[in-house]
Computed example of a mutant assay.
Amino acid sequence: MRQETATFETRLKHNALAIEALLGRLLGLSVEADEIARPENLLVAMRHGVLNGGKRLRPFLVIECASLLGGSVEAALRVGAALECIHCYSLVHDDLPAMDDDDIRRGQPTVHKAFDEATAILAGDSLLTFAFDIIASPETPLADAQKTALVLALARAAGHGGMAGGQALDLAAEKAAPDEAGIVTLQAMKTGALLRFACEAGAIVAGAGPVDRQHLRSFGEKIGLAFQLADDLLDLTADAATMGKATGKDAARGKGTLVALHGQPWAESRLEQLVAEAEALLEPYGARSSILAETARFIANRRN
């Protein structure tokens, strides 16, 4: 194993544990100022949807991009936790019968299976709202202008012009398969928008200027494309036990993907190209960006 890989894997695991611990504290039963009560069953469902392992890749990107530019680790952790709440809310809602209708997520029952559909909807709603609570909170050590920038960027990445809109396009794709441009748009919204935000958020946390912010935003866009392409390959080639969720569902539903359109060899070649483009965006930062470069390779080569 190369040393850089060992360092990357160690840091990925370390940051995942730190995010998990922070989310565990944030999703406790203690009532915060201006809250009236925290219904226990709802909190348990929220924790079920969030504290279930996972690589915590999106928070990792926030932390590493902020670190690259000298940003506060504490602030990056909290912004990463907020982003993970958004990501997990989207999974809770995507798993519902009205959406993707999945019973297993990360190897355990989905929230609507472990509880019920109404509780799953409310758990997702609460996680979505709580994300902005975490960013705006006095406990997040950032200037108000930084918090405003983060809230705006996250709202646009997660809402109807980003992730939620991408899910709407994904549902529509079950009835009428989109062309290649439509697939690219769908994937940039549903998957890529939050990964783009994760990288740009690191720059905002660090108080970086527009050039650095754009560099990391573009890096996030490249790895977002790579993430979805790798995901489509895994949906085709991996088994459910390895993935911790059902596979082969896109093909079964007739959804168009770039893999289905161009084939596996093309997809593998395109992944290599995206990684090279992502690494090129990091060249101005030299050796300091080695972990982010390794992250791009990890995304392209992951097995689950």
Rank of each mutant, 00 (worst) to 15 (best):
Q3K: 09
E4C: 09
F8H: 04
F8Q: 00
T10H: 15
L12Q: 06
H14Q: 07
A16R: 07
L17G: 10
G28Q: 07
S30G: 07
V31S: 08
V31E: 05
E32W: 15
A33N: 11
I36Y: 15
R38T: 15
R38D: 05
N41Q: 09
L42P: 04
L43I: 15
L43V: 14
V44Y: 15
A45S: 05
H48R: 00
H48I: 07
L51N: 07
N52S: 10
G54W: 14
K55N: 04
R56H: 08
F60R: 00
V62D: 08
I63N: 03
E64K: 02
C65S: 14
A66P: 02
G71T: 06
S72L: 11
E74V: 12
A76M: 04
G80C: 02
G80A: 01
A82F: 10
C85L: 08
I86F: 11
I86C: 01
L91I: 10
H93I: 01
M99D: 03
R105P: 00
R105A: 01
R106M: 05
Q108C: 07
Q108H: 11
V111I: 11
H112C: 00
A120V: 10
I121C: 03
I121N: 03
G124D: 00
L128C: 07
F130E: 00
F130K: 00
I134T: 12
I134L: 05
I135V: 13
A136T: 13
S137T: 06
S137F: 13
P138N: 03
T140E: 01
T140N: 03
Q146E: 10
Q146A: 10
T148A: 10
L150Y: 13
A155F: 14
A157P: 06
A158S: 15
G159A: 02
G166C: 06
Q167E: 06
L169I: 15
L169A: 11
L171S: 12
E174N: 10
K175S: 08
A177L: 05
E180P: 09
A181S: 12
G182K: 03
T185A: 12
L186R: 09
M189Y: 15
M189P: 11
M189S: 09
K190Q: 04
L195F: 14
L195C: 07
F197T: 02
C199P: 04
E200K: 09
A201Y: 14
A203S: 14
D212M: 06
H215K: 07
L216N: 07
S218F: 15
E221Y: 13
I223R: 05
G224W: 12
G224T: 12
Q228R: 03
Q228V: 11
L234C: 07
L236F: 15
L236T: 13
L236V: 12
A240C: 05
A240P: 08
A241I: 11
M243N: 02
M243D: 01
A246I: 11
G248W: 13
K249Q: 09
A251M: 04
A252M: 12
R253L: 08
R253M: 04
G254N: 06
L258F: 14
V259H: 05
L261D: 03
L261N: 06
Q264D: 09
W266G: 00
A267D: 03
R270G: 04
E272V: 14
E272F: 13
L274N: 02
A278H: 09
L282V: 10
P284T: 11
S289E: 02
L292R: 03
A293I: 08
A293E: 02
E294P: 08
T295G: 04
I299N: 01
N304W: 14
